[in-house]
Simulated scan of single mutants.
Amino acid sequence: MNLLVLTVLQIIIAVMITEWSAALFDALEQHNMAGLQTQIRDLLLIFAASMLVTVLHLKIKRDLQISWRAWLTAHVIGRWMHKGHHYQIAQILTVGHDNPDGRIAEDIRVATDEAVNLSFTLFYCLLLLCSFTQILWTLSGSVILNLGYIQIPIYGHLVWLALLYAALASILGWWAGRPLTLTTNAMQTVEANFRFGLVKARENAKIISANKREAHEKKRFLGLFQDINGIYDLQTRAWEHIILFSSGYAVLSMALPILIAAPRYILGSITLGALMQSVQAFQQMAAALSWPVNNMPVIAQWHASVDRVLGLVDALHDLEQQSLVTDPASDAE
């Protein structure tokens, strides 16, 4: 609950910043020194409030993340180290489940940490969208679409443009980022297999030395790393597509709202402060709508880790069911 309240406070501060920006640019346009001094004072208050809320939000969020991770880790370890499941899972299950140590140590961390991050950034963006849609609608006023014999008034045109812009960006971003989702999942698998191979070699070091199998193990390690190298190249190409899209999107997001709102300022329909507030509201609204695009790599990593944790949990569940079938009396005790 505290985290939700702090997230709402972050939205309030974001709205206050846009209002402060509008007042600042209006004071500059009017050459108003008293207004400028007032905005400097207000900025100090916003600055202090923003720092306090951000720090508290971070602390409470991290407490939630580590608490959830601790609970889930204890739960999975308890099932893994029960009735020989830690041994059976390596002997019975397929290669896809042969590294529970990596899933417990790394995938549970990613699954819990990123679940909290994604949930609250999504909540933040939804609040941001509601707040700045209303602001942008008010600032947009109405424009007349002249079709010759017919003149059509368009209300909230900046809102509709922001929706269209974000929708197109989301479609293009999904198309550009889909290969990254696939390669991220594959990369986590091959990395885990490589790490597990090294752990097994350490555990069997005496046997490897006695049988003089160092050359064989070296070849196996290099083969596992070659799998990483192949996926790494595919992931690099996927990242190139994301970077090309993101860099162009960032430049366009900065320039587009100014170019759209500037004619109304030049015609004298709005003040400089209203222009800058419109630009910021457009950017905030577009940023909120672009949550899926901006978080696509994180979602891909989180989804892959969740799948791996669920795979381990399902495998342990199967072992528990087998134990009930083979030894029902022990469970009854």
Rank of each mutant, 00 (worst) to 15 (best):
R237F: 10
G230Q: 07
Q188L: 11
R195H: 03
Q151I: 06
A162G: 07
L224S: 06
R213Y: 00
G197P: 11
V199C: 00
M187S: 08
K200H: 08
L139H: 08
K206S: 12
L180N: 09
R213Q: 12
D227S: 15
I231R: 01
S170V: 10
I231N: 06
I208C: 05
T138I: 06
G177C: 13
R213E: 13
V199R: 15
W175K: 12
N185C: 02
F221P: 14
L136S: 00
Y155P: 02
V159G: 07
T138N: 02
P179Q: 09
L147A: 04
A201S: 11
V143E: 05
F221H: 15
S142D: 09
S170Y: 03
R178M: 08
S140G: 11
L161H: 07
E191A: 04
N204T: 13
L139W: 03
T138P: 00
Q188M: 07
T236M: 10
Y155W: 09
P153N: 02
L161P: 06
L222T: 14
L139C: 05
I207P: 08
W137M: 10
R178S: 15
L172G: 15
R213G: 02
L234K: 13
I144P: 00
L198N: 07
N204M: 13
I135T: 06
L168H: 00
W174E: 09
P153S: 00
L172S: 10
I208F: 11
Y165S: 14
F194D: 01
A186F: 14
P153A: 08
E191N: 05
P153C: 02
A166H: 07
R195I: 04
G148F: 05
I150Y: 05
L168P: 02
K212R: 12
T184Q: 12
S209P: 00
V199T: 12
L129K: 04
V199I: 10
L129D: 02
G141L: 10
L168Y: 04
Q226C: 15
S131D: 01
V199M: 06
A176R: 10
E203Q: 15
A215Q: 14
K219P: 01
Y149R: 05
G173L: 13
L145D: 01
N204K: 14
L168G: 08
P179S: 04
N193S: 10
T236V: 05
T236R: 08
I228Q: 04
G148S: 07
L147H: 11
F225C: 09
K206C: 05
A192Q: 02
V159D: 03
I150L: 02
G141A: 10
L129R: 02
L136G: 00
L139Q: 03
P153L: 13
G223V: 10
W174N: 13
W137L: 03
A162C: 04
S209K: 13
